[in-house]
């Protein structure tokens, strides 16, 4: 199987043959290829709506990669979230998303002049 490594911008051209990987520039590429061949995973980055009019959306990411097939479902779930606290970069926005054992975390600190909103 021929793959393009998406771990870093080098975009190495990988070949997977059984459990042999070639074309990778580093160890991360080998791991990526092995996983991609069986169960592809992606990290997902998006934004969550907030209650702060001067900071309407908070950037977030999945703490680690989730199955590619779950991305659509994750986006549905994220659409239902609403941030009312002045979260800091790295804070958990939602725990154990879709039961995957992975948290959704903020990738920026809420930047607002407004008070925290109670739910």
């Amino acid at each position: 199987m021929e793959l393009i490594c998406i771990v870093c911008p080098k975009s190495c051209h990988l070949t997977v043959d059984g459990d042999k990987v070639s074309g990778n520039g580093c160890k991360r590429g080998e791991l990526f290829a092995k996983e991609e061949a069986i169960a592809p995973k992606r990290s997902v980055t998006t934004t969550v709506a907030t209650a702060f009019c001067d900071f309407p959306v908070l950037p977030v990411k999945t703490e680690s990669d989730i199955p590619k097939a779950k991305i659509e479902e994750l986006m549905q779930f994220v659409r239902g979230l609403y941030v009312t606290k002045k979260l800091k970069c790295g804070d958990v926005v939602a725990e154990n998303i879709l039961g995957l054992g992975i948290n959704l975390v903020a990738t920026e600190s809420v930047f607002t002049q407004k008070q925290e909103v109670s739910e």
């Binding site: 870093c8 911008p9 990290s43 980055t45 998006t46 934004t47 950037p59 990411k61 970069c89 990738t107 920026e108 600190s109």
Partner: peptide, 22 residues
């Protein structure tokens, strides 16, 4: 730039844009 991929060289980690800036 809320997507990730920033900082692999500088911090050895895959960061989102705002995270890198912070």
């Amino acid at each position: 730039c809320v997507h990730d991929g920033f900082g692999l060289i500088r911090f050895g980690q895959k960061l989102a844009g705002p995270e890198y800036a912070e």
